[in-house]
């Protein structure tokens, strides 16, 4: 599974957090551009965890601002042996 495979899924999962339907891509800064508050970001991350059946500790969340950052982390977790 590559980052490119994961990005469209993350963008879909962001749907409920993007009421203004802003265009989303790998460079989208999730909290800043979508104006999601801190709790909202954590709720969204739970959706990503459950969709991919992986663990994304809260400690990682502050380092993953963009869709691309998050896709990279998901890919790393999914591709772990």
């Amino acid at each position: 599974m590559t980052e490119a495979d994961i990005i469209p899924t993350i963008c879909n999962l962001l749907g409920p957090y993007n009421p203004e339907h802003k265009p989303l891509n790998a460079d989208t800064d999730i909290p800043a551009e979508l104006n999601i508050d801190s709790v909202g970001v954590l709720d969204f991350i739970m959706e990503v965890e459950d969709h991919f059946d992986i663990e994304i500790p809260m400690n990682v969340v502050s380092e993953t601002r963009t869709v691309g950052d998050l896709a990279r982390y998901v890919a790393t977790q999914k591709n772990r042996v």
Binding site: E55, P57, M58, N59
Partner: peptide, 12 residues
């Protein structure tokens, strides 16, 4: 939790 430096996992 943040101050502890532990890995933090949030559940529903």
């Amino acid at each position: 939790c943040t101050l502890s430096g532990a890995k933090l996992v949030r559940f529903r």
